[in-house]
């Protein structure tokens, strides 16, 4: 967290809306991305991200400055998304509403590459949507935010051992789903990289 962000948080806690607006601007991408990965479509993700910021604004006094603000904010967003998913069955993602990627594609004008990227996003999103919401959140924190198991535990209000077992379960499920989604005998050749265990 930068000094500017610390100052914004302090000012926002004293009622400065502009300072909170700066926090929204700074954290909109990670919050939106988390909501998008959790819910699978841009409209629901926008709504969930907005609501997460409203909740953060309302409960800013409960934030402990010793903790990471990003983790606290993403924790609010992930809990909100998990609640949404539990309350209703969200429709599966349509590729027509996939938002732009933050990291620009080096071959952006190439439509084939863009279609490939969209297909890949849709593929991964379909896999994510088929696992339990809390396991999904753990996987998103691990692979999109590079969070450690301890940080995931903090964000999802779980124990570290629970996070480990959820990650293990989710990985196994994703691998099996990926296998079943491939055409017959999809794994034919050895991948260039090995498992961390190897």
């Amino acid at each position: 967290m930068t000094n500017g962000e610390t100052l914004w948080i302090k000012q926002a806690r004293h009622g400065d809306d502009e300072a909170f607006g700066s926090l929204v601007e700074a954290y909109q991408k990670p919050v939106f991305n988390l909501c998008y990965r959790m819910l699978g479509n841009a409209n629901d993700a926008e709504d969930a991200a907005q609501e997460s910021f409203i909740r953060a604004y309302r409960h800013l006094r409960r934030y402990d400055p010793k903790r990471s603000f990003a983790t606290w904010l993403l924790s609010i967003a992930s809990h909100y998304c998990i609640d949404c998913l539990r309350r209703k069955q969200l429709p599966t993602m349509s590729t027509a509403v996939i938002p732009e990627e933050t990291v620009p594609d080096t071959a952006a004008p190439n439509p084939e590459r863009k279609i490939f990227s969209i297909e890949k996003q849709a593929e991964i999103q379909t896999l994510l949507e088929r696992i339990n919401p809390t396991d999904r959140a753990a996987i998103i924190f691990r692979y999109w935010y590079d969070y450690s198991e301890v940080e995931i535990a903090e964000a999802l209000s779980l124990s570290v051992s629970a996070v480990k077992s959820r990650l293990f379960r989710a990985r196994r499920e994703l691998a099996k789903l990926w296998l079943s989604s491939q055409p017959s005998n999809g794994v034919k050749e050895r991948r260039p990289h090995e498992s961390p265990a190897l």
Binding site: Q28, R37, A45, A49, I98, P99, Q121
Partner: peptide, 10 residues
Amino acid sequence: NAQVEPQSGF
């Protein structure tokens, strides 16, 4: 799969 961002004006 990179991070996705909201439409401008969030």
